[in-house]
């Protein structure tokens, strides 16, 4: 069937709500408004205000309330409007959700799912354009997911809800209108492994989320130039599935990491370090990274585009590692 990323997310929520009465959705404007990005549109009418729960603008309180409800037998899906606002709930996410299980000696798992929008590219300026999923991937105790396809938008939520521990799902704001065919019986997917989205033999391009389409576009460009790129979609940012990208690097001998986060201290740095640690002698060229320029994201279109990874900059980095620049 024809669908969109947004509709696939909605169907995943609907499916989870039907499967398990402990599941409910809570967040700012998820009900009457239908969700800031219209993901939950229509769900209030279907499930009612108890289970599609509009909250005040109190990120710390409603994320903490999600933690408490999860501790007490419910299976909440908390929607934070965007990752930018998640900073107001960082205390709850790090000091409670990610920590309570260990600090209690295993007594208090927190089966909470938090969804949030991430990323830049829509001229929303600095405070609405962060890509901070790499920060969250730093934290032991969390699972961090980044659905980049219709299948993952539809399929990641249910296994996330089945996980006894907190799961963060990052939805890139540029993906909601992504449309295409999704199998009628599409359902839960594996949330532990990376996926090879394009097979190739000359260079491994490693990315996730909103950068996947740009990376695939770069790969098409490279193909026209005689360079056969393999594209890895990480899917799960924590715990990282190193095996998939290391195995790819072992046969391509070259790697470029594409990450919309800032370069310094980023997820791309972690991936490059793992390649250096585990596959150093397989490399024919240094690992390259294509990241967001280290500036707050500017409003003006030409400046924003210049700040972000683009197919051209990705392809240029790949050419450099393949041909030496």
């Amino acid at each position: 069937m024809k669908t969109t990323y947004r509709e696939a997310l909605r169907e995943a929520i609907r499916d989870a709500m039907r499967r398990d009465e402990r599941v409910f959705l809570m967040g700012e404007d998820v009900g009457s408004y239908g969700g800031c990005y219209a993901v939950s549109l229509g769900l209030l009418e279907e499930f009612g205000p108890e289970r599609i729960r509009d909250t005040p603008l109190s990120e710390s309180a409603f994320v903490g309330a999600g933690i408490g409800a999860a501790l007490n037998g419910m299976r909440p899906i908390v929607e934070i409007m965007t990752v930018n606002f998640s900073l107001l709930a960082l205390d709850q996410i790090l000091n409670n959700a990610a920590t309570l299980l260990h600090m209690s000696g295993g007594q208090f798992p927190v089966p909470l799912v938090i969804r949030m929008t991430t990323g830049a590219g829509r001229q929303l300026a600095a405070q609405h354009s962060h890509s901070l999923e790499g920060w969250y991937a730093h934290i032991p105790g969390l699972r961090v997911l980044a659905p980049a396809t219709l299948e993952d938008a539809r399929g990641m939520l249910w296994p996330a809800l089945c996980d006894p521990d907190p799961v963060l799902i990052f939805e890139h704001n540029g993906l909601y209108n992504l449309s295409g065919d999704l199998a009628d019986d599409a359902g839960p997917v594996d949330i532990t492994r990376a996926a090879i989205r394009r097979q190739g033999k000359d260079v491994t391009l490693i990315t996730y989320g909103g950068s996947l389409a740009k990376t695939l576009a770069a790969a098409d460009d490279l193909a026209a130039d005689g360079i056969d790129a393999e594209v890895i979609d990480l899917r799960t940012l924590r715990p990282l599935d190193s095996d998939t990208f290391l195995e790819s690097v072992r046969h391509t001998h070259r790697a470029v990491v594409v990450d919309e986060g800032w370069r310094t201290g980023s997820l791309s740095a972690e991936i490059a370090a793992r390649i250096a640690e585990e596959a150093f002698y397989e490399l024919d060229a240094p690992v390259r990274r294509v990241c967001t320029a280290e500036v707050p994201i500017p409003y003006a279109k030409h400046l924003e585009e210049a700040a972000l990874p683009q197919p051209a900059s990705i392809a240029a980095a790949a050419r450099e590692v393949v041909r030496g620049g």
């Binding site: 903490g64 408490g68 409670n96």
Partner: peptide, 20 residues
Amino acid sequence: FGGNAIVGGGLPVAVGLALA
């Protein structure tokens, strides 16, 4: 449900326990 060492950090959790 534990001693919370972030001042104020337990209040939202208590709200969630009560919500359940």
